[in-house]
């Protein structure tokens, strides 16, 4: 099994109202249950808008906390899910489900693990 990070790419600033969000959240819940039922759900959640994030950077006299980072582009990672599945094809199948449920582009990134076997 291998773990993948699914990053949902979301437009900055646009928070859809509840009538749109409600059915989407329902679908996401259903996908999560399916993943959990087959022991593939590791972790997941949505993120607030990028201006709520804080940054800690290395500084000359220890780490420094600042506001931000603010998204440079029009998009940010609005939510993440970590799944534990067989291989990339299975990860892509779940990613398709998320894309269909949210209408958002999703990046699929593999976690570093041991050498894969066929």
């Amino acid at each position: 099994m291998a773990q993948y990070l699914l990053k949902m790419i979301q437009p900055v600033g646009e928070v859809p109202d509840q009538s749109v969000l409600g059915p989407v959240m329902e679908k996401l819940g259903a996908i999560q249950q399916e993943l959990a039922a087959q022991d593939s759900w590791v972790f997941g959640g949505g993120l607030h808008q990028p201006e709520t994030a804080s940054m800690v950077r290395p500084g000359d006299s220890g780490p420094v906390v600042t506001d931000g980072p603010f998204a440079e582009g029009a998009e940010f990672v609005g939510g993440v899910t970590i799944i534990d599945v067989e291989d990339l094809d299975e990860a892509l199948r779940w990613a398709r489900r998320y894309v269909e449920a949210t209408g958002l582009a999703t990046e699929v990134a593999p976690f570093i693990a041991g050498m894969p076997r066929a």
Binding site: A2, D87, L88, D89, V108, P110, A118
Partner: peptide, 8 residues
């Protein structure tokens, strides 16, 4: 190898 593209 790293993203585990399957041999299938």
């Amino acid at each position: 190898r790293d993203a585990r593209i399957p041999f299938r």
